[in-house]
Simulated scan of single mutants.
Amino acid sequence: MLRPQVDADGAPFWAYAARGELRVQACADCGEPRFPPRPCCPHCHSFAHEWRPTDGRGRVWSYVVAHPPLLPDYAAHAPYNVILVELSDAPRVRLVGNLVTGPGAPLGSFPRERLDRLRIGARVQAVFDGSGLPRWVLERP
């Protein structure tokens, strides 16, 4: 399975996620949340930042269902979904992940016959699987 390439700016995001917390970087001066993490605020150009907890809720902003041919590490999981989630309490922040059936469920666990429930605007909640990768479940399965 592919792992994220962690840099100094994003390392806190992954450290919090490994503990089961979804946090986003925010400017300590103007308060704007930002993702991906970076040293300078794109709004006020401040270098001051903090990591704010989120409630982990959002909505599906976009999605795709991947089918073969794929990277070899993912072929066995196909077809699987990839979703782009807009966070409810930080609407300028969008995170990529997968819709799964529950905490700890593997990639591809969301059944193909239920893909009709995967739609733009569907409400989702972040869950963690112990690997530090945030995944998502439907709020109303």
Rank of each mutant, 00 (worst) to 15 (best):
R34A: 04
A78R: 04
E86F: 13
W14A: 12
V24R: 05
V96T: 14
D89W: 07
P68K: 09
L2E: 15
D9N: 07
D89E: 05
P12Y: 01
L71C: 00
V124W: 04
V85W: 14
L107C: 01
G130C: 08
P4W: 08
D29K: 06
A75N: 05
G130Q: 01
N81S: 08
A28N: 09
S131G: 13
A8F: 02
L2T: 14
A66W: 03
R117H: 06
V85F: 13
D129L: 00
G56C: 12
F47H: 15
F110A: 08
E86I: 06
S62V: 08
L84I: 15
S46L: 06
C30Y: 13
E86P: 02
P12A: 02
P33I: 08
V124P: 00
F35I: 02
S131C: 04
P53A: 15
M1H: 12
F13Y: 11
P134W: 04
A122M: 03
E32W: 14
Q125I: 08
S109N: 10
A26S: 11
A28E: 07
P79D: 03
E113M: 07
L115K: 00
P79T: 05
A11Q: 05
D89Q: 07
Q25T: 01
C40V: 11
L118C: 01
H45F: 15
A18F: 03
A8N: 03
Y63D: 13
M1G: 13
Y16D: 00
L107S: 07
A28V: 11
A90D: 10
V100I: 09
G31C: 00
S88Y: 00
R59D: 09
L95Y: 03
D55C: 12
H43A: 15
V65Q: 05
F47K: 08
G97F: 00
G56N: 03
A75I: 03
L133I: 11
T54L: 09
C27E: 09
P79G: 03
G104W: 04
L2P: 15
F128R: 12
L71V: 05
D129P: 12
L118S: 02
C41P: 03
D29E: 03
R94V: 08
A76S: 15
A66D: 06
L115A: 01
P79E: 04
C40H: 10
P4K: 06
V124F: 09
V100L: 04
M1K: 01
C41I: 00
F128Q: 10
Y80M: 14
R123E: 15
A126S: 08
G108S: 05
A78S: 11
A26M: 03
P141F: 10
A90L: 02
Q25E: 14
M1C: 05
M1W: 10
V60C: 04
Q5F: 14
R52G: 04
V127R: 02
R59E: 13
E139Q: 15
R135W: 13
Q25G: 02
T101G: 07
Y74C: 14
E32D: 00
V127N: 10
G56T: 07
E21W: 09
P33Q: 11
G104H: 04
P111Q: 01
L115N: 14
Q25K: 02
V60P: 08
A126M: 06
G121M: 02
Y80P: 13
